[in-house]
Design a protein around this nucleic acid. Structure first.
Lengths: 197, 197, 197, 197
DNA sequence: GATGAATGAGTGTTCATTCAT
DNA sequence: CATGAATGAACACTCATTCAT
């Protein structure tokens, strides 16, 4: 009797990983509209039919890839999260971590940008993603309580401390902006000026 | 004796207009990837073949529609532009005008959001669009000169006074944020705090 | 009162001529299958709709062009036809004239080659064309009567004194064969040896 | 218990064969220009999409079909090839075999005639086809060496011993010529007279 | 679990042709 | 006479997906 300890699962993981990377790569290269199942399969080095072993359909593949990235990003951004620091420092930390993640995974970031403007976006279980970002949210809430941060609608706050990151990271939008520590720090000053009381 | 006020076999503004609206509507409803030429034609009430009378190909239709919207928006945003007002007031005016345009033409705005994350985006003649936004740019430059606005990279400034508008206008991103004058004014306070010296 | 003597007809002729040349050129360049009405019209510098002023439909244009060439060729080949020469000389004359015509109008020749293998070919009034070639035919008949030429089926004779010209003129078929007088003369020797008694 | 002798999801020779025959049949019936992929598929009893499982594109189907026929013909013509016979007999054998092949496969022959006047023709790997006809070529060369055959350009020789076959086999060109052994023999006499010294 | 074969439904685009002007 | 606009029908081809193996 032969016992496979993890080999089947390992095999799976390799293919699924290849599929994930192929999806991201292709969407970045040729766009959402042109990224067909068979092209993704070819890029991943597997048969199109095999995709349906791992995912219900194309949409499932696309959505799962998005969720996977978002979770990844949530985790990366909160690494070494230290609740005991001053609020400004916590936010600055996250600000830098986010830029760092995007810099190191620009393809992932680009993918989410494309995805979040597609209709698939409505299929995402947002709560599942948002929970990865709860810690920051709580910091903002605490800042409001402590009268350090302006007591305004939450969407307004995020529009000024997270959304500009997206703009600044988007090479297409910001062609003059060099993503170095100094510039990122300057930009944070503006973000903080915007939200601080 | 019959008098034709509008010739029946002359390129038809009404049709081109219908095509424009159909394109925007469909892209908003089913997304870029699913908006096929034949669906757009059906929505516009014309034959798919007729599209090729007005546009070189699908991409041309999509790009032209985008450019049209952007120009429209540029014009609308600068209406009643008064260079003699204080810089803060000028920017506040534009801030409101932009929200107003987006509120009245949310489909147009959504279209540009989808478009600007598609690969077609690279085909746009950006200079042609940017010239519509030159006046605001000049105001910012003046603000820097007069030491009213922070002397930082231009991309950073726009990331804080224009990009948040996009976030706040995006119903998907901001579900709690109601787009009324009071909220828009509050948001502008943050924008101004971000960029002012 | 203005009197036009021939201007209308002249105008016609210019367009029809342009159409003829455009058809031949395009068929040679991109083949029968790809030569569309609108491409031909564009090549001729007129509107596709105008073609239907001169021809019933596309097929009519194609067939007429073929017939026109064939008549032209028949005329050219029989120029300076001298019935009083010895039969061998008459045939040799025609042999050379044919090569000469093909050399000077290779596009016309290529067109007929493509056309004669298409199904349109069945629509041609062959009798109308054949009458242009009657003089040669009669020479062959006389040669048979005078026991100078083999008394065999007519198709066999033409297969040996006309068909090889087509082969030899076809650059695709004969890549080594240079079309100079000496070679043409040598080839005629073979043709004559084939049919002579 | 059911036994499958031929797997049902394995690339299917029967289908490819049907595709080959359908292509030839349709091109003969309606011509190259009108033979669309979907018509061919319908004739073969398969889905148009399935064609692309077997061939890269339409051109590939057309070219492959041509090459297939040419190879077939090369093989058939050289069957029972006997190098030891007198040169005249060898050529006469091939002459008859060629007529025989064309008589039995007039559709194939017609297909090649149409194809060789189309622009696809340039895509054929000629060397691959020509190697099937090397034996005859060698016989001609030997005939020249032995001063039995005229020492003239090779293209001229083939224009007189192969090209007339095409003319004579072409029902359109030769309407009076009945393809019986006697007539074929007579025609060979002319061919031989043409090339012999 | 993995896949090649197969396909109906669709893609973007061009077609030959008509028609009002 | 000449044409630009218009189109139904067709084009070559790709799609997401299924299914037998």
């Amino acid at each position: 009797m032969i016992v496979y300890f993890r080999s089947m699962r390992t095999k799976n993981d390799i293919k699924q990983e290849a599929l994930f990377e192929a999806t991201v790569k292709l969407v970045n290269e040729i766009g959402f509209a042109s990224s067909s199942v068979s092209k993704i399969a070819k890029e991943a080095g597997i048969s199109p039919a095999t995709i349906y072993v791992y995912y219900k359909n194309k949409e499932d593949l696309l959505v799962s890839t998005y969720v996977e990235i978002k979770k990844n990003m949530g985790r990366a951004v909160h690494e070494d999260f230290d609740d005991s620091l001053p609020i400004r420092d916590i936010l600055k930390n996250i600000w830098f971590k986010t830029f760092d993640y995007i810099a190191r995974h620009s393809e992932y970031f680009q993918y989410t940008e494309q995805f979040s403007n597609s209709p698939h976006q409505s299929l995402v279980d947002k709560q599942e993603i948002e929970k990865y970002f709860d810690p920051v949210i709580n910091v903002l809430l605490r800042g409001i309580e402590q009268k350090i941060i302006k007591n305004v609608n939450f969407d307004i706050l995020t529009a000024f401390i997270f959304y500009p990151i997206i703009a600044l990271s988007n090479a297409r939008v910001c062609q003059d902006f060099e993503l170095n520590d100094e510039n990122i720090e300057i930009a944070f000053t503006l973000a903080w000026d915007a939200i601080k009381l």
